[in-house]
Design a protein around this nucleic acid. Sequence first.
DNA 1: CGACGGAAAATTGCATTCATTTTTTGAGAG
DNA 2: CTCTCAAAAAATGAATGCAATTTTCCGTCG
Lengths: 253, 253
Amino acid sequence: MVLDPVTEPEADAGLATVDEARLSAIPSLVRSLHGELLARLRDYIVEGNLAAGARVPERILCERFGISRTPLREALKVLASEGLIELLPNRGARVRQLGAEELVDLFDVMGGLEALAGRLACEKITPAAYDEIERLHHEMYGCYMRRDLHGYFACNQAIHDRIVQAADNEPLRTSYANFAGRLRRVRYSANLDENRDRWGEAMREHEEILDALRRRAGTELSDILFVHLRNKRRAAAGRETACPPDAAADVAS
Amino acid sequence: MVLDPVTEPEADAGLATVDEARLSAIPSLVRSLHGELLARLRDYIVEGNLAAGARVPERILCERFGISRTPLREALKVLASEGLIELLPNRGARVRQLGAEELVDLFDVMGGLEALAGRLACEKITPAAYDEIERLHHEMYGCYMRRDLHGYFACNQAIHDRIVQAADNEPLRTSYANFAGRLRRVRYSANLDENRDRWGEAMREHEEILDALRRRAGTELSDILFVHLRNKRRAAAGRETACPPDAAADVAS
DNA sequence: CGACGGAAAATTGCATTCATTTTTTGAGAG
DNA sequence: CTCTCAAAAAATGAATGCAATTTTCCGTCG
């Protein structure tokens, strides 16, 4: 390709019209066709339709989603940057295989993000949002008392989600969702049925979480949440397996 | 396009050969052609060659980098997922404009990641790595005493980097680099020359950081680092401006 | 003089095509 | 029967082509 001497690498004139400025204010996640495909493909992989470590067959997926290779490959590049798949030069994409160490690392990052979320939530949470978490906590306690594992999981997830929401920090939300998605590919439903000790411990930790949040004790809550995630990881250790195609993974603790 | 009834969404057979397994073990960031372009384009934007909020002109960049639009667009999609640019349907990419609130949010996430890094570093750091940080700390103190701002910045950055490295957590490293890259687009060289109070305060905080790290006090270090970043943000508040094309931003504190 | 409207030009998004590399297949040798 | 090696087949990475949307430009009207 012939290459003209191009305009110098100095700043291109950024003359934004009023209209452009308005549109720039959009949360950037405009529901575009590309974003749609990206979400669908991500779900497709996260839900375990491709075996861990398996090739990601472009041709098949193109037919599966009714698109050509160009947008698909764009989506694959993004998923690779998210860490869900890996790209090997001239050999295409593979579903990322999570080793035990990587799993530990991801758990720690989740713990760090939750710790941050807790700290920020203490600063920004509204009384209404706190009340909602308190309600979920008591509902979760009810599930715990009557050994309703499924309900317990749902409440637990809801509480952690609300804390992240309460942190009111968009980049944090995005990162959190990213890492949660990566971990969702592994099944770590630390079977609390067979691990009553952990269940009771987790419940006690949640009491501490709620208490720290009530007192808006950011530093304390931050620490409790990190340790909480660490314990969750320990409880789930050794149980990581490939996620079957059907079920979304349960998040234990 | 005619669309045959495709193979069911059940798990594709993942028959990995020995060779495939070996290759899957590669850190996934294989220096591919695509990765190269991605890095160059990211640098191009981070270094401020495009005005904030300005369009990202595909044609020009294609000529600039000597490639066609396909790989460029793939790179743009990735950069959008990293939050560096934003994609508006049918109107291309814009360099992301960071408002004051977004800047605050990003700083907080950086603080959360550094807090996590500090905690993990306390668990995993080797004596040699600690000694290196201690050395850098004393070197930084020397810079502080003789008012060598540039040297101080360099040491400061090196120390924070070493802590992240010592955490020995690849996803953390990646996320940290991502957020650091986004923030690098803004100039927040909190001018410590005109802010002696902050400089002294930052120096004292670094004393605490080293002390906590020496004692491997993870929780404590975690808290100190977050507050340290908060204070850095406060000191830099109001000074955020678009980064000029020439200079890499100094990281203050 | 400024606003409005429509056609031309440019740009975007996606499909298709092409060169290169990898993977598979199969024939032949040991 | 297994291993080796070469050719065929498939897949990948990138360039080009094309329809659709957007942006620009200019003539006209108020």
